[in-house]
Write a protein that binds this DNA or RNA. Structure first.
Lengths: 133, 133
DNA sequence: TCTAGTGTTATAGTTAACTATAACAGTAGA
DNA sequence: TCTACTGTTATAGTTAACTATAACACTAGA
């Protein structure tokens, strides 16, 4: 997980999205415990309530189950559920907007998608940065 | 312009983005006046101050000039400025995130391009490919 | 039982975004 | 001058997001 936050979305939603990404990437498998509310809060220097709120979203989506005194655990079937739901959400809401932006900027989706397919999933970084001493 | 708002970003920023889109699309040309603060506020049922805040962003970016008593006008060179700035921002900030999501969801270029092939002049790609194994 | 780890709730305060309402300030044209 | 548009500022209130601090409730293991 990254240690920084984006100002374009509330922290609790970004937190939710990160866990989702970890599930999809297989970093968190079904049955695994989530990092504890307190730990996450400490590590990212965020209020425990904010972390809880992010986690609660996952509970509401039935991706995660909470066991008091024990922790929060990835539900069985979570990854499949996510793949379906997130795909649909992405195609219906995000991609149309992104695609419009791409055309507006005179870029081509094809090039972006191809150029990126060659890279490893880790290297999702644009080379805007010059080397620094 | 659309009449609805997204809950994922503040209204004033969405407003700014819409004007930017209109400039890039050539709906608003250099020298043209923006729709007036009061009109927009009325049409979208939003507070005038919120509209002003969105417009002020454009002024701060030097895309728009404000003439008291007259209105706000698209600056000369605004489109060029935007193309550069927005491209860089998109490639550096948005695309990496989107691209990661695409891979995470196991979506393919083909799937994504088909949906809006109708819009893009580039995407007249009648290629055939193997169905998934 | 005690301890150290879990999730959860309570209380209270700050800030950003948005709202309603109103007034001020400048420009063009009848 | 009067009218009807513009942008701009002032005042004050609501809500959502986040914060700090503390306590409560539960579980596993020594």
């Amino acid at each position: 997980m990254d240690r920084e936050w984006n100002d374009s979305q509330p922290i609790y939603r970004q937190l939710r999205d990160r866990v989702v990404a970890m599930i999809l990437d297989g970093v968190l498998k079904e049955g695994d415990p989530l990092p504890s509310v307190r730990n996450v809060a400490a590590e990212y220097r965020v209020n425990p309530l904010t972390v809880l709120k992010g986690y609660q979203q996952l509970v509401d989506e039935q991706l995660v189950e909470s066991r008091r005194g024990l922790g929060m655990f990835i539900n069985a079937g979570a990854r499949n559920l996510l793949l379906k739901a997130e795909r649909q959400k992405f195609l219906a809401e995000e991609w149309p907007r992104v695609s419009a932006t791409i055309q507006r900027l005179g870029l081509t989706a094809k090039e972006l998608l191809n150029g990126d397919a060659a890279r490893s999933p880790e290297t999702s970084n644009a080379d805007e940065e010059k080397k620094k001493p």
